[in-house]
Write a protein that binds this DNA or RNA. Structure first.
Lengths: 342, 342
DNA sequence: GATGATAGCTAAAACGATTTAGTTCATTAT
DNA sequence: ATAATGAACTAAATCGTTTTAGCTATCATC
């Protein structure tokens, strides 16, 4: 059983390929094809099980109805939910999503962009890595719409982004901790020089400063990105052991770190919140189900996905001739979810 | 900045497109293109930033170097990890993965297969739904390799599959429970008439039978598939409340149900394992971190992904002319991970 | 009975590659 | 001097669509 092409149908129906094409694309009326021919062609197409070859179509029209989604790691809950939302939302506009993971490696990210561009995707949703600015501008110069998610380049407002308001989120978390009387708040973050993380860090220092909490009370732990799970866990265990008296609360700046944090706390048998309060940026099933429930700053994952698709679709609309779109620089509010860990 | 095509290069280099094509495909030597021309073409291609258009290439060659991955739901941990493994493994063979979620809906699954087929993917890795048999056979008739994962059609060994040995896994779990003295073992499963689930159910009954445990001691709860999280949780809560005395252990048959189970147990404040032992099929970070740690039957997720890709690649090799491949009917052993919940 | 309009199609180019079958020129063999 | 060989390329078909421009037959109009 071989693939059926438009010309197979044409032959069988005794008409030209153009006619079949018009019928298949609902242009038959505009092209004044007779009702009789329309019916015949449609019937034969159905009988033969015709499905248009999207490669050929894409080659001819330059549109593939496909968008490329580049995340850090699809197996991470945050990105997995984001991907699912984006898949669902894109479907509403009859677009298909192709996703891939960078593992936060700029070289890999660059390769992925190339790969997607070779496959002629119509637009991109990207979780950028460091050093990816140039590649993204190339896409834009190429007239391909791009929306950044989760991370951004704050000095380049011409590159649209949709993400959580990291600064406000951490600020809220810190104020909550301080409001509850904690001062010796340790921060555990990942060592990556990107704006979204710097925003979180900045909020930490700003709030501490506002409350006159000095350097001697600060514990900051940055886990190098490349570390495997084992080493990262060890780092956290060491931190919580060595500085136990100098810490009365820990704030984990990512989902992944929070999970490791829980593991460390479990191993060290630290009582939460009596011995140490815990707060995490970004939610996860575990935090809800753990005992005690871990309070978190929740990101609006689904809304990020929805807004990203909406923005992309607007830029993909045929009327993009003018080229002037309103800029997309969206920071969505985070939500403090109070559980039992603080 | 417009896309650079092979003919742009040809023009600039003063040669024909054929020559450029040969150079770009490392066929230059075979086609006796002179070193001088090779160098020149390569230089110009590099300078102009040439990247081959994969649509055109795919249209001509019939190969897209892309495989389609259909899972139930990419936001579920199990499938997310599977997807990531498959992405990584495929990359080793220079293949790209396009994934999509069926939400366990046969209609959607069918649409996805069509969509992938229209995009001319070279092969498929599919988590089938019920009623998908015919569509899969069509792919095979079309000479497109398919490997099923996680689920299968046991009566159709000609459709290759890679999955965990569900029967053996549940058997091991049940025997462990019984070995520990539990007899009133409740089973919580999902209501779906597919072989992998029936295998799990069968193992449950077989082991009970072997130990002479009768109907009066059995509690079986099937959650209808379409239920949302809220309703499913309520069902489990009701079960654990109403039949509390008739249950001394619960065995959750999926990851997702186990998570809901924990939530129910937490809400009802049931002491594990003293009041009730807990076991779950398929692991999850939560089970490891929850207190008490939940024992599980762990699936070899990564190995499933690896074997699936390996099998697919073998069927994708150019030497598939003979058509005779050794059948792939793989059931990988599950592993009992003992924690504190039993 | 020439002119124009309209209905109902079709021919052919184009998209960007790959690939088969030549072509051209220089060199060697007979 | 002619044929054969080989080196170094090129022309053109092809994949399956879309789309523009044009063709033919019929009918109305003056």
């Amino acid at each position: 059983m071989k693939k059926v092409s438009i010309s197979d149908i044409a032959r069988k129906a005794g008409v030209s390929v153009s006619t079949v094409s018009f019928v298949m694309n609902d242009k038959a009326v505009k092209m004044r094809i007779s009702q009789e021919v329309i019916q015949r062609v449609e019937r034969i197409a159905r009988e033969m099980g015709y499905h248009p070859n999207q490669l050929a179509r894409g080659l001819r029209t330059g549109k593939t109805k496909t968008i490329g989604l580049i995340v850090e790691n699809i197996s991470n809950t945050f990105f997995a939910i984001l991907a699912k939302t984006i898949e669902d939302e894109a479907k509403k506009f009859d677009y298909k999503v192709v996703y891939c993971s960078t593992d936060n490696d700029a070289v890999k990210a660059r390769e992925l962009i190339n790969m997607l561009s070779q496959r002629q995707v119509d637009g991109y949703i990207i979780t950028p890595t460091e050093e990816l600015l140039e590649d993204i501008r190339k896409l834009q110069a190429d007239n391909k719409p791009v929306i950044l998610i989760d991370r951004y380049f704050p000095d380049h407002k011409e590159i649209p982004y949709v993400l959580v308001d990291n600064y406000a989120g951490v600020t809220e978390g810190m104020q909550y901790l301080i409001g509850k009387g904690y001062r010796k708040i340790a921060l555990v973050s990942i060592e990556v020089d990107m704006a979204h993380m710097n925003d979180r860090l900045r909020a930490y220092y700003d709030v501490l400063g506002m409350h006159g909490i000095g350097a001697d009370e600060i514990t900051l732990k940055l886990i190098p990105y490349g570390y495997d799970e084992r080493s990262a866990l060890q780092e956290i265990i060491d931190l919580l052991t060595e500085r136990k008296d100098k810490i009365d609360a820990v704030f984990f700046l990512t989902n992944y770190l929070g999970v490791l944090g829980i593991e460390a706390i479990k191993r060290l048998d630290i009582k939460v919140p009596s011995e140490m309060a815990v707060l995490c940026f970004d939610d996860n099933d575990i935090f809800r189900l753990y005992t005690p429930g871990i309070s978190v700053i929740r990101q609006p994952v689904r809304e990020i996905g929805q807004r990203a698709i909406l923005g992309l679709m607007e830029r993909l609309k045929p009327a993009n001739g003018n080229g002037a779109h309103e800029p997309i620089n969206i920071k969505l509010p985070a939500e403090l979810v109070r559980r039992e860990s603080i």
